[in-house]
């Protein structure tokens, strides 16, 4: 699509689970906006299914799910299942939070394309997103 104008990268940032802190998410959201991205924030306490369906409707380039609860090994498969059921293609799934290395390996095998551990600086997040979206290409 040669003459298409550059549209901002669309990112959905979601928190799943019971922990009620979204300061970190909001800081990252602002950094992404300042890097020229459109950031959709879904609020707290969403279910994996809700988040995945919202990401399909929003047709985001990147769905970033942050969780501190340690439930990532049950949550990400649910998200991936809904994305598949909905036939959604080209949504890059990123995880964030705290988790052991072996889980990171397993998540990546499942289809989570990147894991950003807690305290990853915003610049590194921006870079990861830009790289992954560029690698994916047009859709």
């Amino acid at each position: 699509m040669a003459d298409s104008k550059k549209t901002p990268i669309r990112v959905m940032m979601a928190k799943i689970g019971l922990d009620g802190h979204d300061r970190g998410v909001k800081v990252v959201a602002r950094a992404l906006r300042d890097a020229g991205m459109d950031v959709i924030y879904t609020g707290l306490h969403r279910t994996p299914e809700e988040v995945a369906l919202a990401a399909v409707q929003e047709d985001v380039d990147v769905l970033g799910i942050s969780l501190l609860s340690g439930a990532h090994m049950t949550i990400f498969p649910k998200v991936l299942r809904v994305l598949k059921e909905q036939d959604a293609k080209g949504i890059i799934l990123l995880g964030g939070g705290v988790m052991p290395d072996e889980d990171v390996t397993e998540l990546k095998a499942m289809g989570v394309q990147g894991v950003l551990l807690q305290d990853t600086p915003p610049n590194a997040i921006i870079e990861t997103i830009e790289t992954l979206v560029a690698e994916r290409g047009a859709r």
């Binding site: 906006r33 300042d34 459109d38 950031v39 609020g43 969403r46």
Partner: peptide
């Protein structure tokens, strides 16, 4: 609104619409 400085935006209306998803 889009930020006039970066061209990006934070879109937060969904926060209030969580119950509708699904």
């Amino acid at each position: 609104p889009t930020s006039p400085f970066s061209g990006g935006a934070i879109l937060g209306d969904r926060i209030r619409m969580g119950e509708l998803v699904g």
